[in-house]
């Protein structure tokens, strides 16, 4: 691993993110992201072709700042969203982490993920899975998420999805 950060530190950030999501410690989860972060869950266009431009094709979620995620965190905790009350229990797993340093010094981190979801409303469970690409940038001593792209491989959505199930 080049630069100031080890692969262990990178992995630790991804594991911590998963942990914070599952613990519903979403304010801390937001703090992992840079204020001008890009958060992108593209839709599929064809069987094996993702939408590659969020401005000409659909995404499940697309933001160019943390503001949209802050809205979602607020809504999920508001008690006025039917879909978020009660919130499901989730378990994120992140693995197959590979990391490369870009010319800019930022780290491009690819991984595989799955999220087990126990829907307390329906008393049913389902799993979403796919791949993450994180772009991490140094912020002083720490790494912050400048960009997160989430590819959802099983996009036949059961009910609905939100930031806490991908």
């Amino acid at each position: 691993m080049s630069g100031a950060f080890s692969i262990d530190q990178v992995a630790d950030l991804l594991y911590r993110e998963a942990w914070l999501l599952d613990q519903q410690r979403w304010k801390e989860w937001l703090d992992l992201f840079a204020p001008d972060c890009r958060f992108w869950v593209p839709a599929w266009n064809q069987d094996h072709e993702l939408v590659d431009d969020p401005d000409t094709g659909l995404s499940f979620i697309y933001y160019e700042s943390r503001g949209g995620l802050e809205d979602r965190v607020w809504r999920a905790k508001s008690g006025t969203s039917v879909a978020s009350t009660p919130l499901p229990r989730t378990c994120h797993q992140v693995t197959n982490i590979r990391c490369e340093e870009e010319a800019s010094g930022r780290l491009r981190v690819r991984s595989a993920w799955n999220c087990h979801i126990f829907d307390l409303r329906a008393k049913e469970q389902h799993t979403f899975f796919g791949h993450y690409t994180h772009l991490l940038a140094a912020d002083g001593e720490k790494l912050r998420i400048a960009e997160k792209k989430i590819v959802l491989q099983n996009d036949l959505i059961t009910g609905f999805i939100d930031f806490y199930c991908v």
């Binding site: 593209p42 839709a43 599929w44 266009n45 939408v51 000409t56 094709g57 659909l58 995404s59 499940f60 996009d155 036949l156 959505i157 059961t158 009910g159 609905f160």
Partner: peptide, 8 residues
């Protein structure tokens, strides 16, 4: 618009 979304 490109992007096919299906839910159940």
């Amino acid at each position: 618009v490109p992007g096919r979304i299906v839910f159940r």
